[in-house]
Amino acid sequence: MLASDAAYASLREDIVSGRLGPGTVLGEVEQAARLGVSRTPLREALARLAAEGLAVAGKGRTLVVSNLSAEDVRHLFELREALECQAARLAAQRGDRTVFARLAERFAGAAALVSATDPDQVAYYGLVAELDAALDEAMASPYLLRSLATLRTHVARARRLAHDNPERLAQAAHEHRLIAEAIAEGDATLAAQATAVHLRASLANILASLAAAGPGDPAGPHDPADPHEPADDGEPAGPHDPADEVGHPHPGAAA
Rank of each mutant, 00 (worst) to 15 (best):
A180S: 05
A149C: 08
P218W: 01
E167R: 09
A162E: 04
L210E: 07
L42N: 00
P41I: 02
E181V: 01
R159D: 06
A182G: 10
V65E: 01
A133F: 08
L68A: 03
A213E: 08
P41L: 10
A162Y: 05
L161E: 01
V155S: 02
A104N: 06
H198C: 05
I183G: 08
L207E: 06
R157V: 09
V155I: 13
G216M: 03
V37E: 06
G53F: 07
M1F: 01
R97Q: 13
V99G: 07
S38K: 00
V128F: 01
I206R: 01
A219S: 14
G234Y: 02
L135I: 15
V246D: 13
R43D: 13
D226W: 07
V29E: 11
A123F: 04
A170L: 02
I15C: 06
A47L: 01
D244T: 07
A212W: 00
A255M: 11
T62S: 15
S38W: 04
P227L: 09
S147E: 15
A129F: 03
G18A: 03
A149T: 14
A172H: 04
L2G: 08
A55T: 08
C85K: 13
L46P: 14
A57K: 10
L49A: 09
E137Q: 11
A254Q: 07
G109W: 06
A110C: 09
V197Q: 03
T98N: 10
E44I: 07
A101T: 14
K59N: 15
A182S: 12
G216P: 04
Q86V: 13
L2M: 12
S147K: 07
V114T: 01
R152W: 13
V16M: 07
T62V: 00
G186H: 06
L210T: 06
E71L: 09
D96W: 00
A243K: 12
E81S: 12
A104W: 00
R168G: 00
A204S: 10
E30H: 15
A91E: 11
R43S: 11
G234E: 14
A201W: 00
L113P: 14
E130H: 12
A231I: 09
L103W: 03
Q86C: 08
R159M: 00
P249S: 07
A87C: 11
S66H: 04
A149G: 12
T195S: 10
D72G: 11
V99Y: 01
P166G: 11
R157E: 10
A158K: 02
R200S: 11
R48A: 12
G36A: 05
L35F: 06
A91N: 12
A133S: 15
G36D: 00
A138D: 11
A7C: 06
R200Y: 02
D217C: 03
A110W: 03
Q31W: 01
R160K: 09
G53R: 13
A212H: 10
E44H: 04
D132L: 13
T98H: 09
A140R: 06
H228S: 10
E229T: 15
H250C: 00
L20A: 09
P221C: 09
D5N: 11
F77C: 02
N67R: 11
